[in-house]
Design a protein around this nucleic acid. Sequence first.
RNA 1: GGACCCGUAGCUUAGUUUGGUUAAAGCGCCUCCCUGUCACGGAGGAGAUCACCGGUUCAAGUCCGGCCGGGUCCGCCA
Length: 461
Amino acid sequence: MARCVIKDIVNKENSQVSVAGWVHAKRVHGKITFIDLRDASGILQVVFTQQNAELFKIVDAVRPEWVLKISGTIQKRPEKMKNPEIITGDFEMIASTLEVISKAETPPFPIEGSGYDVSEDIRWKYRYLDMRRPRVLEILKQRAKVKRFIRDYLSDRGFLEVDTPILTKSTPEGARDFLVPSRLHPGKFYALPQSPQQYKQLLMVGGIEKYFQFPRCFRDEDLRGDRTLEFDQLDIEMSFVDEADVLKLTEELVIEVSEKVIGKKVQEKPFPRMTYQEAMKQYQSDKPDIRKDKNDKNTFAYLWVTDFPMFEKKDDGSVGAAHHPFTAIHDSDLPKLTDSAKLFDIRARQYDLVLNGHEVFGGSIRTTNPEILTKVFNALGYSSEEIQVRFHHLLEAFSYGVPPHGGIAAGFDRWLMAMLAEPSIREVIPFPTSGSGFTSVMEAPSNVDKKQLSELHIKAV
RNA sequence: GGACCCGUAGCUUAGUUUGGUUAAAGCGCCUCCCUGUCACGGAGGAGAUCACCGGUUCAAGUCCGGCCGGGUCCGCCA
């Protein structure tokens, strides 16, 4: 008999069906035994009685987390015995046959419950067991649902989903790169992308006009509750736009996701906006939490923060880019570019979207004018040689006809964490890494064969 | 790179302040009883090199040093 997924048994009253899944719980009452069988769609109570003595003997040996195939008749439960906690709670199966597909060791931690009280190292080591708990499965479902919605939403509006490389070029400015040694080119390295920033700008030169992607990004920096080594972005770039266009698109998308997909309320629409200056003055933060009720998990407080400073003073006193050098600056601040006393007053056309105090999106209009770019590079102290080495590919591309463009990117995992009110980014990542950077289940980084090292022209330590 | 907290049975924790016989509990696990439970219930039982290495001491889960692992924060994250 073909397998019926558990949530569909509600339409199978009085018919004979077959279900398969894991033993979620077993309750033995002498002459009657209940098994809660769990599959990806839900949980079903299966009843075994002594009327089928042979089957009753078989079920005696069954333990939690065994994989079973059970067939039987779906019946409506007596009124007093319904269970509103599960989707099949008005029904139960009277078992007629049982096949043990796979026995199971006792799990190292309870599958039942939220799992928040189990230490993370053991949850990630056995993440494949941890995700059997309905709470984690629900997060994975929500993650997929949001991604799918955004894909459809942007595709329907003429955006092209384009994949950019994972093996790319090191960019020493910014976060520390993950490096990949080249076998074919001794002593040279690829880097994993920190973001597809330059590629998406090249796509604009390439005439794509409206681009999006969910790129995997990598940053070799210390981890935090809302930061991890690899993460997904929602990356968007558009040609022939200004701030208003990017903010409008983002805001409409974010409202749809928050209200329609996640099903929560948005505190204020349209999203309030404040400049970086105002945020710092009023909240001493560039990502203020403006929730009226911080205990209300059903309302999202989004806030645009705009006009970030273009430059910042680094520890050694030198001038650094607060974001990246291709961020455009306000026209009225252009004269300050050549006045070193006023550099730190220059406002970038940079905007962040803040949700409940988390920076969830960030973007800007880009500078495409070579004269202004040169002045920005000069302000950052780059020599002409450095400019050529680091950015020639983008500058050369711009020389072949570049549309004005701008865009935005979300830290997708962090946004999801904030929307689902999860306590850490690791809860919304299928296979998260620990705080010291060990991966789930597989426990990388690990040692490798000497042969592998020598092929990569690396000496063993 | 720095600060703080944590590591005791499969899981979650108590015990560490003030060193002292056989390390305690709940859940889980095993055995038995139980026909309507749904985290079923009842009775009994097994289960711990107290993360690891070293030091102090007659004696260390407890004090000291180191180290590994987990968490939070600062630095860092253009």
